[in-house]
């Protein structure tokens, strides 16, 4: 482009010209301040384009992705209807007993570790849905820590009319973790008592969550937290 023709500059910036065309534009640019200014602006736009990955311009479903779709649908189905139904009659209950013993041991250790433990316990009562300082009569409180997942949980089970309100405060969760609370009764039946996501603030200060479950408080055997993906986080025997 020996003559002034800024419309060449788009293809020039995008690197789509032939080598001899590039040379011509270079020559023109050397003597044209107007085009050099324009070039700066166009280069800025090219930088913007770089923010978008090239894959953004592929359309349609993936090839060979059927299993992926089915897996995803299963996860969404499982997560979209958990509030109503008892999920599983926990067949694995006997196996869990050994873990509870380990947890019980952990509770003892934690009860001795005054600082953090006491703080966590107090936060729970402060934020319990009841406005009083003390937990209601008949409530059960436990604190456990799980060395495997690095979490510590304080759980309070409060009696309601034939059901229970369960609040937990958990330290050691990662921001963005999606958690579910499961309550198992003494017959080994497991109920979902809600799910939540851990905010960055909660990851630092402890994640608090409460959920109701149709199990009388004296029938609650354990409270377990799992990720929505099904990974065990921490279990408290009540």
């Amino acid at each position: 482009m020996s003559e002034h023709d800024p419309s060449q500059l788009g293809a020039y910036v995008l690197g789509a010209l032939e080598p001899d065309e590039v040379r011509e534009v270079d020559e023109h640019l050397a003597g044209c301040a107007e085009c050099r200014t324009e070039l700066v602006e166009l280069e800025e736009m090219k930088e913007f384009l770089g923010e978008v990955p090239p894959e953004a311009f592929l359309d349609g479903p993936p090839t060979d992705g059927d299993l992926l779709l089915q897996r995803t649908l299963r996860e969404v189905r499982a997560a979209s209807a958990p509030q109503e139904a008892p999920v599983v009659a926990a067949a694995a209950a006997p196996k869990k007993r050994t873990r509870w013993l380990a947890v019980a041991a952990a509770v003892v250790v934690l009860a001795g570790a005054v600082g953090g433990g006491v703080l966590i316990g107090r936060q729970t009562t402060d934020n319990a849905p009841v406005a009083t300082e003390t937990v209601p009569a008949g409530s059960k409180q436990v604190m456990v820590s799980d060395a495997g997942t690095g979490t510590t949980m304080a759980a309070t089970v409060e009696p309601r009319a034939g059901w229970s309100w369960v609040t937990v405060t958990i330290a050691g969760l990662k921001a963005g973790a999606e958690c579910q609370m499961f309550v198992t009764d003494k017959t080994g039946k497991t109920y979902v008592a809600g799910s939540w996501v851990v905010s960055p603030k909660a990851a630092q200060e402890g994640s608090r969550f409460g959920g109701g479950v149709l199990v009388p408080t004296d029938q609650v055997r354990s409270v377990e937290i799992k990720t929505v993906q099904g990974k065990h986080v921490v279990t408290a025997a009540v």
């Binding site: 990955p53 953004a56 592929l58 359309d59 349609g60 993936p62 992705g65």
Partner: peptide, 22 residues
């Protein structure tokens, strides 16, 4: 559940290839 499923299916059909490639 059925609307969740419909949403996921339509997102997958329209954007699945792009997402998986990326």
């Amino acid at each position: 559940p059925e609307s969740a499923e419909a949403l996921v299916r339509s997102l997958y059909a329209e954007h699945g290839r792009s997402l998986l490639a990326y």
